[in-house]
Design a protein around this nucleic acid. Structure first.
Lengths: 340, 340
DNA sequence: ATTATTGATGTAAGCGCTTACAAATAGGGT
DNA sequence: ACCCTATTTGTAAGCGCTTACATCAATAAT
């Protein structure tokens, strides 16, 4: 005797508390619309039954999920970790849950993930960078899912974004490289196709060169995946160039760490023989030796601001503003003066 | 004229294709139960309407979500990254989606996340380590959600697990430290409370010492959070001990990286003056200098096997076996002979 | 020709929740 | 006393899907 023990439903709670399901629902979702005594009774029932609301049912009935989706290019390295963590923290503070998935830098996979997240009832989406098929935005509009772009700031874009100017930030770093006397500059960039951040960083270096009267076409550029080993390979290739570059600017810290490692293997001293720079200022930048001169991106600030803006959009409190985050040069040990 | 453009439903597709909703559903979920011609017509309708099934509705009706949840202690560093990636890859191959959340090493938060994941309809759960309140397992049982423990292997436990023996692995490394002549051994461990992996690693060191006739009580032990800076702090404390330890074994590579960094700041040469070891063999271990002597954990293998076992459990094909993964010592440069 | 069998499709009953609306109750003003 | 408003609670209609069961046609077996 006794029914099979199985997960209790709203109905079970209602019966146990001697009220209607509507009242239980109200106790859970808008407690102030229920009188104290009733609420107490309901909460006791919830407690003693060990009731957990069924999420799918709630989403379906309420057409709200209090869930935000984020699609990032990769989880493999720490590039997005800190910013995403901050994004999530802020979201949680505001009562939202974050669903993350990664696209492996593949537009097709990204489209797929977006559909999945929307199907799962995400109230809003965080996307990385602007470059993306227009159809995706139409799809999101049709499903009435607001989206926000991060890690990139482009006031020209019709889509709201929270981020920084990759070009300006990299340009500033490049100016400092040039100011240190470097003339033969090389760059190890991430794959620029479909990646406005990588594109911006390359553009920044070119602009700094042009502004200083250097021929931007002399930039020795290698594009490769954002992986340590890829950075190492690219560095090796670069070191074979004649004449050899005196400064290798990397698209991010991961690539720079790879370059540094390869320099060690090749017996090339950094920064005495070759200078190396990074971008992002993730934890790695401080661990490697020599510690990286890089561009510090305030990821936590970006994450928090993105969260606030996106929830405002979801709640109809904002039409979607664009927010610019400032970056800062960090001078550590991997960039040195070049004479000659 | 013309209705408001909004997301199409199963019903819209059914109308467009001139069939019932049941048929559309079958086309999507068991295509072979529908005749070719009909399927074609339905698929065309799906395509042209840009239909995406509503996940919540599907979960609710089918009581299956093809979603697996994983709660990991932290996403901050790379400890779990590779294993989780492999877990996800295998899951995707088998038609499942992974939902990840992190508990920040807080049991209360973990319980909360588990409830959330279950409420979201997770078909199965991946948990890290065995140490956890029994009530949680009861809850999971009641909701009929199978769970699998990873990153730890304990044939004694009543719960199935896929992992390795943290104690054995660390013991082996400690033996090698002792064999190198070290007698004054120190350890920087993660917080052991509620963390069977950290406990196991400490136990492993103690066992190796006892086995070699050393007094395990002479082990200088500091427990701290798994963060680079914490590792650095602990290392500094350890270096102030008199007599100073000649080998510092760290609970993982992150802590070891911190120790290495602090050694650099203190001007202590590793491994000439002090040896340092890690655990995990994450990417970091190879990047730092000197490269870490550590224990290699085949994270990818563990992730994939965990995924296969868990889906088997979800599909009722397995009662939950425990699988032991082998670890391997990696001798790099941070451990040296100690004479005297 | 008749009936049994098989396969394709339709019908409709939920899944567990939220919420518009209705109902009931309790004051407040006259 | 009366009516009006405000507050608390109940009633019941879905949300978009899956699936057990019913139906129907086509084929095989008698």
């Amino acid at each position: 005797m006794g029914k099979t023990r199985s997960a209790p439903t709203l109905n079970d709670v209602a019966e146990a508390a001697g009220v209607s399901t509507a009242t239980v629902s109200r106790c859970l979702n808008s407690p102030d619309r229920v009188i104290e005594a009733t609420r107490q009774r309901v909460m006791d029932a919830v407690e003693s039954l060990g009731y957990t609301p069924n999420f799918a049912a709630r989403v379906m009935a309420a057409k709200r999920s209090f869930t935000i989706g984020a699609i990032i290019p990769t989880m493999d390295n720490a590039i997005f970790a800190r910013g995403l963590q901050a994004f999530q923290d802020q979201l949680r503070e505001d009562g939202y849950t974050l669903l993350v998935s990664s696209s492996a830098y593949d537009p097709e996979a990204e489209r797929e993930q977006i559909r999945t997240l929307v199907a799962r009832g995400a109230d809003g989406l965080l996307l990385i960078g602007h470059a993306r098929d227009a159809g995706i935005y139409e799809y999101l509009e049709r499903h009435q899912v607001p989206s926000l772009v991060a890690w990139s700031y482009d006031p020209e874009a019709q889509r709201p974004s929270v981020g920084f100017s990759n070009a300006d930030a990299m340009c500033e770093l490049a100016q400092s490289v040039i100011a240190a006397g470097h003339r033969r500059i090389a760059m190890i960039s991430g794959i620029t196709e479909g990646n406005d951040r990588a594109q911006g960083r390359v553009e920044g270096v070119r602009r700094a060169m042009a502004d200083s009267g250097l021929d931007a076409n002399t930039l020795a550029l290698i594009e490769t995946d954002y992986e340590i080993e890829r950075g190492a390979e690219a560095f090796r290739q670069l070191m074979a160039f004649v004449p050899r570059p005196t400064a290798v600017m990397c698209g991010n810290d991961v690539l720079a760490a790879g370059a540094l490692r390869e320099a060690g293997r090749l017996g090339i001293r950094v920064p005495e023989q070759v200078s190396v720079t990074g971008f992002d200022d993730i934890e790695l930048a401080e661990i490697v030796s020599p510690a990286l001169t890089t561009v510090h991106v305030p990821h936590r600030e970006m994450g928090r601001k993105a969260a606030r803006e996106l929830t405002a959009m979801v709640e109809g409190k904002s039409e979607g503003r664009s927010i610019c985050i400032g970056t800062k040069l960090v001078n550590r040990c991997s960039l040195a003066e070049q004479h000659g």
